[in-house]
């Protein structure tokens, strides 16, 4: 447990000290969302209809973009090898790293979402539910993405390979994340069931993805 907290604190501190990565992720999020009206036209009704989907896709891409930093820096300076051969189980270390990554990139991105919601004429009722589904669903993006990042750590042009591997696995999270928001627009409690499924995804990925990620790190660092 001590190692868990130590890794968590270290990663948060490192991210806070560097800062650049987070700023870029938010900037990317902002730009992708502002490109959409140029693509589909400024019709407010249309934008309101597609807003939840656009915001989810933009968030997903921003998370994807930040994933290669999860293990790459530690791989380059050699500290990843210490974590792999260290006493603490690698799976727990990975959970700590993913949590730190989620706190330092996922949460700020979600906090930026309501502002972008105004750009897309998102219905006022949907704001709360959108942020809630994102809070429930994004850890799954980070956990699944961590497995992909572990598979591609230390590979030349790993970023492209990472997106090819991870994006198909994001389909279920996207489907349930967006449909929770859309069903809340139709009725008050239509989204409860969808949220439960989304929460189940997050828990399942938190349980399984670290195992795959640990196996991949061991294979890559042998």
């Amino acid at each position: 447990m001590n190692e868990f907290m130590a890794v968590l604190r270290r990663d948060i501190k490192l991210a806070a000290a560097q800062g650049g990565g987070l700023g870029m992720a938010i900037g990317f999020f902002l730009i992708v969302v502002s490109l959409i009206p140029f693509g589909v036209g400024p019709d407010l009704n249309l934008l309101a209809r597609v807003a939840p989907g656009i915001l989810w896709i933009a968030l997903l891409l921003s998370v994807l973009l930040s994933l290669d930093r999860l293990f790459q820096a530690d791989y380059e300076d050699g500290s990843l090898e210490h974590l792999v051969v260290g006493r603490a189980p690698l799976e727990f270390i990975i959970v700590a790293k993913v949590l730190a990554h989620w706190i330092t990139t996922g949460v700020p991105l979600i906090m930026a979402t309501p502002i972008l919601g105004f750009f897309l004429n998102l219905e006022p009722d949907a704001f709360g539910i959108l942020v809630l589904t994102m809070l429930i669903g994004t850890p799954a993006l980070n956990f699944v993405g961590a497995a992909g990042a572990a598979l591609t750590v230390g590979i030349r042009r790993g970023g492209l390979l990472l997106s090819l591997i991870v994006l198909p696995l994001y389909v279920p999270i996207l489907v349930f994340g967006v449909s929770a928001v859309q069903s809340s627009m139709l009725g008050p409690d239509g989204s409860m069931q969808t949220m439960m499924i989304l929460a189940a995804f997050t828990l399942a990925s938190a349980a399984l993805a670290p195992i795959a990620a640990a196996a991949a790190l061991r294979a890559n660092l042998r």
């Binding site: 497995a147 598979l151 591997i165 198909p168 696995l169 795959a212 196996a215 991949a216 294979a219 890559n220």
Partner: peptide, 11 residues
């Protein structure tokens, strides 16, 4: 082989 095998099982 290792990496591909892990990916195949995750998929």
């Amino acid at each position: 082989g290792r990496i591909a095998a892990i990916l195949a099982m995750v998929g």
